[in-house]
């Protein structure tokens, strides 16, 4: 949660200089981690990825299927479309691709960040990101 607010701040501060790509590596030891990733992507289809993402972190550990639908309703999503996406596991393949990629890149902990290929594991503060990004911006010149 804290990291998501940091990332949003970075995207504003470095508008046009930083591109953010999110990959899902749902934690294997949590019952609803895959369902939560599916829910965030389904919400993303309706333009509310971050809203769902933040809600999932705020309401953790209540991430059972009923709760996910309740959150979709809370965010004003098209519920039928959301449920259809969830029931058909529309983004399942995308998540599996992400998991495979994570495996290849030896990603075992979330969050893990790759900044121009440099790997950083764990939650970082804005000033920590800032230092790395400044270095990379400088190197790119």
């Amino acid at each position: 949660m804290e990291v998501s607010s940091t990332l949003k701040k970075i995207m504003i501060s470095y508008d046009g200089k930083v591109r953010l790509v999110i990959k899902n590596v749902p934690y294997g030891y949590r019952q609803y981690s895959v369902a939560s990733a599916l829910a965030a992507l389904a919400a993303g289809d309706q333009g509310k990825y971050w809203e769902m993402h933040d809600l999932l972190f705020a309401r953790w550990p209540q991430l059972d299927p009923e709760s996910l639908v309740r959150y979709a309703r809370e965010l004003g999503l098209d519920l039928e479309r959301f449920k259809q996406s969830m029931d058909s596991k529309l983004h399942k393949d995308a998540i599996e691709r992400d998991l495979k990629l994570g495996d290849e890149l030896h990603v075992y902990m979330t969050p893990t960040f790759f900044i121009n290929g440099r790997k950083f594991v764990g939650e970082m503060r804005y000033r920590e990101f800032e230092k790395i990004i400044e270095e990379e911006v400088k190197n790119a010149k």
Partner: peptide
Amino acid sequence: TDGLEISLNYP
């Protein structure tokens, strides 16, 4: 080290 203020943690 892990380069972080506070060391990494169990999920």
